[in-house]
Design a binder for these strands. Structure first.
Lengths: 277, 277
DNA sequence: TATACTAATGACTAATCGGTCATTTGTCAA
DNA sequence: TTGACAAATGACCGATTAGTCATTAGTATA
């Protein structure tokens, strides 16, 4: 789908310049050099466009970071590489960052809110994974606080990339923040963020996932999905939802199959939530 | 002006629910129980409303914090009280916080952008004042980094108040963050944020680079720069600024020569901006 | 060349927007 | 009761919006 990509790119430019609500479909199609009708061949509504964009760009950001975290880099340099990859991403993709990290209008649309939260949770998990790897048992109660600090560093320092194009030394920035993280991790004694708190913020809308809406979501995903492990997993899960049979480990495995493919991460997240996994 | 206050309050509710662009004047007047005409007796335009609101709420937030900073509290407790006042404000005024700290659509309106930046600068100044008071000469080069960390803590932890209404122990939060700040201040050795950088972000980025200031900057760089490709490039560029002769590709090449050397990256950036390259 | 089919168009609609202004309502002193 | 003045109204305006659909253009097959 080349057309879809083109629209997303140009729309991104406009959203980052003017904001989502203030940008009209007309403007988007003009910048693409296509007709208004052509837009609606690619996306059913304007909302569908922004949803696709969130999936496209946030997905990439989160998985990029996760890749560094899960890489075989030595402990000495992992933290530095972690920060370097994050700010490299902010530098190269300042426009999407501006839109998705700042435009919280998006949060008034429930579906998007959930999705953005979900990606934030993914990011948190990556960071926690890294911290456990780096410090193992040294961090007990302060693990989640260190995670919050890291996210704070990201938020604060990323503004340098988002609101200006001053040339910055990424290496030094990464080393500087790695040192700060190290210091915080080694010396903090007063915890505040508990595991319980993290779980609470992960699902602020304690809205239950209804069986009906979940089956519909799965139906949509199955459409236009060719024969594959993912399809089979999804079909098995669908049966499972209608009539419980398998045990938790099997379910978890099936969901994990889906999670590997970026396109299915969201549906995997929702199913996991439904089964409380 | 009671009517003005009423409108601002109700508008704030709606903005925090739906965002600025997505909220119509009609909706505001309906919630206020007044007519559309009455709205325009208080505010000339919808934009004037949001500007007034920014002034009203951000003003209060910044001055509240500044009051604590400038107070006669002892060093031991000042940091804790600083954080307590900040999160107290976030707790009590979650709605304005949601609007003004997250809705960066506002930034597409130039006048507002400048104003919000101005308040951010005020906040930074308060924090720096506090750090100088607390640590005096102990912090040399890392002063601005500590300030960025504090702002990062604020951004990260404030989400707990903005996106949920979980009951939280403000005292422990403040003590926890005060400890983190203390640790960072005492142990950081690798600085990243320089005074120059802070001044740059304080200025609106669209500012034209004047020929005069540019020549001065180049002059500074030429001093203490021995004979080299970089020096020659810089001298050629200096001549070029005073009297255009070369074509764009040549200029770009000369600037590129400078960019390779970290020390000259900044001057390269400014020159590129001057020539619109 | 004729046919069949998809991709693309842009005039069109109904709704909504920010903003205006002739008119009505409410409140005084005389 | 009247007249004068300000406060408040809401029908109305032109512009703009998201979204539709009859029509046309382009392309592949027969």
């Amino acid at each position: 789908m080349l057309k879809k990509q083109l629209i997303m790119e140009k729309a991104l430019e406009l959203f980052s310049e003017q904001g989502f609500e203030a940008t009209s479909v007309q403007q988007i199609t003009e910048r693409c050099g296509i007709s208004k009708g052509a837009f609606y061949l690619s996306f059913k509504t304007k909302d569908e466009l922004i949803i696709s964009m969130v999936e496209n760009y946030l997905q990439r950001f989160v998985t990029d970071v996760d890749q560094v975290v899960k890489s075989s880099l030595s402990k000495d340099i992992k933290l530095v590489e972690f920060y370097k990859s994050i700010f490299q991403a902010f530098k190269n993709h300042a426009a999407p960052a501006r839109v998705f990290f700042n435009e919280k209008v998006l949060l008034s649309k429930k579906e998007l809110f959930q999705k953005i939260i979900a990606y934030d949770v993914e990011m948190s998990k990556s960071i926690i994974y890294m911290l456990e790897q780096l410090y193992q048992d040294e961090l007990h109660e302060t693990k989640y606080d260190v995670m919050y600090c890291i996210k704070g560093f990201m938020k604060s320092y990323s503004e340098l990339f988002i609101f200006s194009d001053i040339p910055l030394d990424l290496d030094q920035l990464a080393r500087s923040l790695a040192e700060k993280t190290e210091i915080i991790a080694r010396h903090t004694t007063i915890p505040f963020i508990t595991e319980e708190l993290v779980q609470l913020t992960a699902k602020p809308c304690n809205e239950e996932v209804s069986q009906e809406s979940l089956l519909e979501l799965i139906g949509q995903h199955l459409d236009g999905l060719e024969e594959s492990i993912e399809r089979e997993s999804l079909e098995l899960l669908k049966v499972q939802i209608e009539n419980t049979t398998y045990s938790k480990p099997i379910l978890k495995g099936l969901i994990e199959n889906l999670r590997l493919q970026p396109d299915h991460r969201w549906v995997a997240y929702v199913i996991a939530k439904y089964f409380n996994i």
